[in-house]
Design a protein around this nucleic acid. Structure first.
Lengths: 236, 236
DNA sequence: ACGATCTATATTGTATACAATATCCATATG
DNA sequence: CATATGGATATTGTATACAATATAGATCGT
């Protein structure tokens, strides 16, 4: 292709950062998968995606490889890739680790946060609380708050890991959007924020861990095979 | 290239699993970087690597992207990749997280390990203890022991994360190979093993965390700018 | 009718060709 | 002499071509 494709970047291609086709493809596919546009088990053909996005197979392949390492798709040699089907076991394992890492992040944030971090945290939580519950709009704001906490830890490695774990679980979040609307969620967020602001690492860690546990229980309950929301039929 | 290249797989190309060129290239480059064959800051040209390994640029590029996500190399758009230069800050941050994750792994292993895990753990530690100290041969055995602990946790997500973190720090391990030979290392390994075997999660966690702290202190000390071993001159 | 094998098709894996960007060195200019 | 500028060179980014493997359907045999 010679002419740059116009239909990848959704909001504004005007001052788009990437300029690298593979980057745009990666972001596009990631959003599409996490948004439930492609369902677990669905096969992603390189050629088809190339035609659909108006680019050659090369950047498609490179984006698919990144997504594979992200854990969003499964790749089999000579057989292409499929959107990953998260098993209950993996979700459970992920939350066990997240409880530890989010707890660490909150504890570190309590020690290390700056005034700027504090302002960001307060702003993130206020935005979140002002948003009506239950909508799909709440999920990204919830993620933003947790990312702010991780960022306030001033530990880039930890921040990166928390993000990776979050993305994986987000694979099934769009199937259980009601997780955010638990009545306990709001006050737990407050508890985390307050412990961090008062520079109490132990309380911050405990609050963050409790929050992860609550959240995990909700998500996992909805993943039970008999739960109405996703009695997802296996598609071979 | 039409003829399959023979000089990538070092030990035995006879029953090599990959069969995918990009996989072989990935493993080869990873080992080379971790082995210190390519030094931090060194530029890796796709064309040159392709010629050197006897393959085209395509699998090289794909391997380099994986290594980028692994954190072993830095990629800049239109400017290629360089072997990552680990900063003291990142090493410190990594060990803070590792202390938490290795501790968790040990605690879970104490709860969840099977008889087979126990046998593997004992074997790994015995092999490690029988190996003369100080040699480069000890590093992989040390890693193997820790991987056994993580595996005994029966948490695949955690195992994967521990591996990722380990690989990153291994970037500078070859510059400070003496870290393994600390007199405390051996007894700390024993302490972890025994706590796990007696199914004492708290003790296992404490032992693992202490071990990471000890190890981190050694590595970080050797990274100080004035330390003789690596007063590595910046190469622009 | 059922199963196996073989062939046609489609898809992935690798190689190469072309385009765009960066790098470097020589030259010119203040 | 230092700095800016221009073009030649090299390297990366993308597209396409070719090879190898897998998939599906048809044909043949029992």
């Amino acid at each position: 292709m010679t002419a740059p494709q116009a239909h990848i970047a959704s909001p504004a291609a005007s001052f788009a950062r990437p300029a690298l086709v593979r980057e745009e493809v990666y972001l596009h596919l990631r959003a599409a998968i996490l948004g439930g546009e492609y369902l677990p088990g669905e096969r992603l053909s390189e050629a088809l995606l190339g035609v659909r996005l108006g680019v050659s197979r090369t950047p498609i392949r490179e984006a698919l490889m990144r997504l594979t390492q992200d854990g969003l798709i499964d790749a089999e040699a000579n057989k292409g890739v499929r959107v990953r089907r998260l098993e209950l076991r993996e979700v459970r394992e992920t939350y066990v680790v997240r409880e530890e890492l989010d707890g660490l992040a909150a504890a570190l944030a309590a020690d290390a946060h700056t005034d700027a971090d504090a302002a960001l945290l307060k702003a993130a939580l206020e935005t979140l609380e002002r948003t009506p519950q239950g909508g799909a709009r709440q999920t990204p704001l919830d993620l933003a708050f947790h990312r702010c906490v991780a960022a306030a830890s001033h530990n880039a490695v930890l921040l990166s890991l928390c993000g990776d774990l979050e993305v994986r679980v987000a694979l099934i979040k769009h199937l259980s959007p009601s997780s955010n609307t638990s009545p306990q969620t709001a006050e737990q967020h407050r508890a985390i924020l307050e412990a961090v602001l008062r520079r109490d690492p132990d309380a911050a860690r405990a609050a963050a861990r409790q929050h992860v546990r609550t959240f995990a229980a909700l998500v996992i309950r909805q993943m039970q095979p008999d739960h109405p929301r996703l009695a997802q039929g296996e598609q071979p």
